[in-house]
C-alpha cells in the first residue's frame, strides 16, 4: 500500500486527491511573503532602534559667548515652551570629549554653549523654538536635524509593525488556502472517507491522514518559498549595503526565518484538522 507523509498507509488515496503541486506552489508563495515580512520587520526594527539613538537629542541650541546669564536666559525661555519636554546644557567636559576626534584638544578654543532639547511632540516646529530662544538670547542658533531622524525612526517602527500585520495576514491566507484544498480533497474522496467512517475509523484518524499529508506539502512549499526569499533578501542587502550600513545580513532573524517552514506545516496541519473534523461532525 502507498504510504502518506507519516509513513502510514494511504487508504484514502490522498496523493491523488489533494492538488499537490498547486498547494505546494501556493504555500511557497505564502512562505516567500512571510519571509519578506519577517525580514522587513526585523530590518525596520533595527533601523528604528539605531535611528532613535541618533535622534535622542532631537534639537540642539548653540549659545555663542555662553556666560552663565545668557545660558540661564536661554534655558528659562526653552523650559517655558510647552513643546519642550526637557532642556539640559551639555557640560564643557563632554563637549570637549565630543570634539576631540575632529579638533583634538580644544581647551583653548572659544566654544559655544550647547543645550540639548527633548521635545514633547516630534511634530513641534523647531523654527518657532529657534525664534523664541533667539529673542531671549541674541545670536542663539537652533539645529533640528534630529527631528528628521526621529521621524524616520517613527516611520521605521510603523513599517516594522506593518510587517508583522502582513505576516499575520499571510498566515490567515495560507490557512484559508489549506482549508480550500482540503475541502476539494474531501469532495474528491468523499466515498473513501465514508467507507472508512463506516468501517469504524475514528474522526481523528481520518482527519489526521488529511492533516499529515497537507502538513507535508506545506512543509515542502514553505522550504521552497523561504529558500527563494532568503536568497532574494540576501541579495537585496548586498545591493543596499552602502546605503543602509546599519543593516547587515547578520542582523536578520535567521533562526526565525528558518522556523517558517515548520510554522507553515503547523498552520496547515491545524487548518486541515479543524476543517475535516468539522466536516466529519455532519456524519452520524
Amino acid at each position: 500500500m502507498r504510504r502518506d507523509a507519516g509513513g502510514r498507509a494511504d487508504p484514502i488515496g490522498l496523493r491523488g486527491a489533494l492538488a499537490d503541486r498547486l498547494l505546494v506552489a501556493l504555500i511557497a508563495a505564502m512562505a516567500l511573503f512571510a519571509t519578506f515580512a519577517l525580514a522587513g520587520h526585523e530590518a525596520a526594527g533595527q533601523l528604528a532602534k539605531r535611528w532613535q539613538q541618533g535622534a535622542n537629542a532631537a534639537v540642539t541650541v548653540q549659545i555663542p559667548n555662553p556666560t552663565p546669564a545668557r545660558m540661564e536666559a536661554a534655558l528659562d525661555a526653552l523650559r517655558a515652551l510647552p513643546s519642550v519636554r526637557e532642556a539640559q546644557p551639555v557640560d564643557t567636559a563632554r563637549m570637549a570629549e565630543l570634539l576631540r576626534p575632529w579638533l583634538g584638544d580644544v581647551a583653548g578654543l572659544p566654544l559655544p554653549g550647547v543645550i540639548e532639547l527633548r521635545l514633547a511632540d516630534l511634530a513641534a516646529d523647531p523654527v518657532l523654538i529657534g525664534d523664541r530662544v533667539a529673542e531671549a538670547v541674541p545670536g542663539a542658533v537652533t539645529e533640528a536635524h534630529g527631528v528628521f531622524v526621529a521621524r524616520l525612526a517613527a516611520v521605521a517602527r510603523a513599517v516594522s509593525a506593518a510587517s508583522l500585520a502582513v505576516l499575520l495576514l499571510v498566515a490567515v491566507v495560507g490557512a484559508s488556502v489549506v482549508v480550500l484544498a482540503v475541502r476539494a480533497g474531501i469532495a474528491a474522496r468523499r466515498d473513501s472517507v465514508m467507507v472508512l467512517h463506516m468501517l469504524g475509523a475514528a474522526d481523528r484518524d481520518i482527519a489526521g491522514r488529511f492533516a499529515w499529508r497537507t502538513a507535508w506539502l506545506a512543509l515542502l512549499g514553505a522550504i521552497l518559498g523561504m529558500a527563494l526569499a532568503a536568497g532574494l533578501v540576501w541579495a537585496l542587502l548586498q545591493l543596499a549595503g552602502p546605503m543602509l550600513p546599519e543593516i547587515t545580513p547578520q542582523d536578520l532573524p535567521w533562526p526565525d526565518l528558518a522556523a517558517i517552514p515548520s510554522g507553515a506545516a503547523l498552520v496547515a496541519w491545524g487548518a486541515a484538522m479543524a476543517s475535516i473534523l468539522l466536516w466529519l461532525r455532519r456524519l452520524p
Partner: peptide
C-alpha cells in the same frame, strides 16, 4: 462499527487500493 461487518450491494471498495489492501483495511484501522 468495528464489530460489525457490512456487505453492500454496490461493493464500496476503495478504487485506488489493491484487493489485498482493501481487505487489510479494517485490521489496519
Amino acid at each position: 462499527r468495528r464489530k460489525i461487518g457490512v456487505v453492500h450491494q454496490e461493493f464500496r471498495l476503495l478504487p485506488h487500493l489493491s484487493a489485498w489492501d482493501n481487505v487489510a483495511l479494517p485490521l489496519r484501522l
